[in-house]
Simulated assay, not measured.
Amino acid sequence: MALFFDAEWFDARLGERGLSRGVLAAAAAMSAADLALAFKDQRELSAGEVAAFAELLGVEAGEVASRAGVSTPLPGQSGADTRIAALERRVAALEAEVARLRGG
């Protein structure tokens, strides 16, 4: 599994289908800015976004989740897995804020 968002993999899948990142964002009801954050590994995908990406790219949701990062929830996840994923997103957001404050 990927530890971080695998932008090259997503771009390759989009290229194979003749699609752009804009189409990917629209399919997942995301703004271009939100998609850009995901591609820079600064925003996690929701379960719905994972499902939308998978449908558009013609791959399993688990593959999208794996390529988007290990803490990305799969569609239908609930309970402890969802709470852990939420905590991991909060930690990632805090780490990003610390890096921003340090100028990195």
Rank of each mutant, 00 (worst) to 15 (best):
residue 94 L to G: 05
residue 72 T to W: 15
residue 7 A to H: 08
residue 20 S to Q: 11
residue 13 R to G: 02
residue 93 A to H: 11
residue 50 V to D: 07
residue 11 D to W: 09
residue 32 A to D: 13
residue 77 Q to A: 10
residue 59 V to Q: 05
residue 96 A to H: 12
residue 53 F to Y: 00
residue 67 R to N: 09
residue 80 A to E: 09
residue 94 L to V: 10
residue 80 A to G: 08
residue 11 D to N: 15
residue 14 L to M: 06
residue 21 R to H: 07
residue 30 M to V: 09
residue 41 D to V: 07
residue 70 V to F: 12
residue 86 A to Y: 00
residue 51 A to T: 05
residue 21 R to E: 09
residue 90 R to C: 00
residue 84 I to H: 04
residue 75 P to H: 03
residue 104 G to S: 13
residue 84 I to T: 06
residue 54 A to N: 05
residue 99 A to V: 01
residue 90 R to E: 14
residue 32 A to S: 14
residue 9 W to A: 13
residue 7 A to W: 09
residue 32 A to L: 14
residue 13 R to A: 10
residue 79 G to R: 00
residue 28 A to T: 02
residue 72 T to N: 12
residue 81 D to Y: 06
residue 61 A to R: 11
residue 9 W to G: 06
residue 34 D to E: 13
residue 69 G to E: 02
residue 3 L to P: 00
residue 88 E to W: 02
residue 12 A to W: 05
residue 74 L to N: 01
residue 19 L to H: 07
residue 60 E to S: 12
residue 84 I to G: 00
residue 11 D to T: 12
residue 97 E to W: 02
residue 81 D to F: 07
residue 98 V to G: 05
residue 59 V to P: 00
residue 13 R to H: 08
residue 59 V to E: 10
residue 52 A to R: 01
residue 67 R to T: 01
residue 25 A to T: 01
residue 34 D to V: 06
residue 3 L to A: 11
residue 26 A to G: 13
residue 40 K to G: 12
residue 12 A to L: 11
residue 52 A to W: 00
residue 66 S to F: 04
residue 23 V to D: 08
residue 96 A to P: 08
residue 1 M to A: 09
residue 53 F to T: 00
